[in-house]
Design a protein around this nucleic acid. Structure first.
Lengths: 364, 364
DNA sequence: CCATTGACGGCAAACGATTACCGCGACACA
DNA sequence: TGTGTCGCGGTAATCGTTTGCCGTCAATGG
């Protein structure tokens, strides 16, 4: 698995005992071929023919010496690392770490390592991270979650993505974004429509929306679905029933504080993500408002917590793991040229009815 | 910030327009010095003197061309990448992603990128990941969480760590492990003792333990603290009250199912981590056992969820963010030689009393 | 029998930075 | 004036692979 060769003393030797990693030249020497041949025999991607006998000899030598190719040298020479960058809002966020995990697993299976960056949706942090990734020549970049609507940010990102393209790196969006980037997207509009229709079907008429961050494209899409369902049912969206929740638990709690004071009060709440829904649930409990007795709550995402909360949350399931894996797949296909399209494939979302929704009070 | 130089057509050009990243030779050419001088003027770590005038000229040229050093080339030549690997159980686990986030932030601030690997505590996965990291010549490796007690695993890990050391990479443990690795550790024994003493002080005598995975060193430490507190109070640990929970919510729930049938039943439960505690809380609610009325529950870790659960969980706070950041700090100090010690520094844990604990029924 | 082709192997040039070593001029000191 | 020292810059080697180009040899076809 690993061996020491004493031929020469390298300057980088930190042990002082002449230990050195085995390199291709050692393998070549032992198997009696040139480094070129050794390289071709060992790297699966090579098109240059190598006879079976030679390949066997080289492989045997490599095994005997415990040769492991230096990924750094490889990356350097091919001008592209075997790393995939993953840009998310926060690793601690249960929505995003689901993507991160799936992407990481898929990447590892394909021989890639993933660098996960938590940007807190801060445009500067985000740009700085991408810059570091570009400096490190990541092979692919996964932009998880919706993009910010911000001129400077979008310009900076376009620039950086251009640099990536220049060295052969590819980017895939896993959320709505500006620009024609290949994408694997959740059906936000459809999902929000499903959630809202579910409430309408139950008999609710005054349905509040706890909205995500205003500048986030994901928020907009989900809001669009909500409004579409409402207007299709002949209902009017009451601006007083739309309050921001910033996609956080605290935001959801604060939103509820405002909503319970609205007159007439809403009988149902659609929270644009589960964190806000769960925050809302907590605040409602604190205020001794019964869910779903007094008010129904629907979330969006179906994070693991949703099923475990009290009451279990009705929500819209986003296939996070599937999208994460699809993103890595897409990167790999883009990289090997088996897919050159920039199209966006959208992944369906589905309503999961649990116990936080019921018909409004005074109705069966 | 970035520019195109048309001097020659590289083979790696995917745009077909001759675009090329700016390299040191461009900067050197523009400022009329050699690459060597340009390098020395631009890299802060160089000891070779460069005149102020020259440095200025080079910096101006670099800025004008938008030069960004190729990290890959740098890493290759220095035989070490600017990446820190982070080995955790699962990014989705609220305990571990707290470490991951802190480490990632600290690393980024120091110019490093982090590769987060979810190993599911599977020895093979863990070893495979470390192997990939070694191949990629990560500068540092953070081993978060306790190590598995397993001969083959420990041998493999020692081997790999030896290879890391051979190229100058360093490893830091963020949990109890075999071998003399520099470490930043949570005080598991002390914390468990605190938790158990808290229950004893409340008047509990039959205190159950929901234990972590048997082979995990963290479990053992926490169990040791529990047993120490018990014996110091003159109480005997009842083997029937010690059940495994595998550090998962489901495990915690299943453990409760067993515990409520024990006779005499425990009046309090110490769960060796918060996930299990929260799982226990859920199962208790499902069975309509009141907490803390009928039974008290203490957890360990103080993950964000703990405060948000119903009832809010009494638990032992582990300074996860601090330990994560300290780990990266340690790596950096080890790397620059300002710290060569292998000592383990232990970070104190603290009891956080919330609403899941109270005196046993029939006692004030 | 000669020309052509294809399989296979080797030589050497990259990739982009860092750094050991050398050289040159200025200056100080004896 | 000779000599040692110091400041500063350049030349070139180096890290470990991959890959373009070329040479050789055997097989094949006319």
């Amino acid at each position: 698995m690993w061996a020491v060769v004493g031929k020469r003393l390298p300057s980088g030797d930190v042990q002082g005992d002449g230990a050195r990693r085995v390199s291709l030249v050692d393998v070549a020497a032992l198997s009696g071929v040139s480094v070129a041949t050794a390289s071709r025999a060992l790297s699966p991607g090579s098109t240059h023919p190598v006879s079976a006998a030679t390949r066997l000899r080289v492989e045997a030598a490599a095994a005997q010496l415990g040769f492991r190719p230096n990924t750094l040298a490889r990356s350097f020479q091919s001008r592209r690392s075997s790393t995939i960058g993953v840009l998310i809002h926060d690793v601690r966020d249960p929505y995003f770490n689901e993507f991160a995990r799936a992407a990481s697993d898929a990447a590892q299976a394909a021989g890639y390592l993933t660098v996960i960056c938590s940007t807190d949706r801060d445009p500067d942090r985000e740009l700085r991270y991408v810059e570091m990734m570009v400096d490190n020549r990541v092979a692919g970049l996964l932009l998880v979650g919706g993009g910010l609507e911000d001129r400077a940010y979008e310009r900076g990102m376009r620039l950086l993505l251009g640099q990536m393209a220049a060295y052969g790196g590819v980017a895939v969006a896993l959320g709505p974004r500006a620009g024609r980037i290949p994408a694997e997207l959740p059906d936000n509009v459809g999902g929000a429509r499903l959630a809202t229709e579910h409430l309408i079907d139950l008999g609710h008429r005054r349905i509040a929306l706890i909205d995500g961050p205003a500048a986030l494209r994901t928020s907009k899409e989900r809001r669009r679905g909500y409004e579409a369902a409402l207007s299709e049912a002949g209902l009017e969206a009451d601006p007083a029933l739309i309050v921001p929740g910033f996609y956080s638990m605290e935001g959801g709690a604060r939103a509820v504080a405002k909503l319970v004071e609205a007159r007439p009060a809403p009988t149902a709440i659609f929270a644009s993500n589960d964190s806000m829904a769960v925050g809302a649930l907590n605040e409602l409990r604190r205020r001794q408002v019964s869910v779903p007795g007094d008010i129904s709550v629907v979330g969006f995402d179906d994070i693991p917590m949703a099923a475990l909360w009290d009451p279990p949350l009705t929500t819209v399931a986003v296939p996070m793991a599937a999208i994460g894996a699809a993103g890595v797949d897409r990167v790999i296909r883009l990289l090997d040229g088996s897919d050159r399209a920039r199209r966006a494939v959208v992944h369906p979302t589905a309503l999961v009815v649990r116990e936080s929704t019921a018909p409004p009070a005074g109705r069966p």
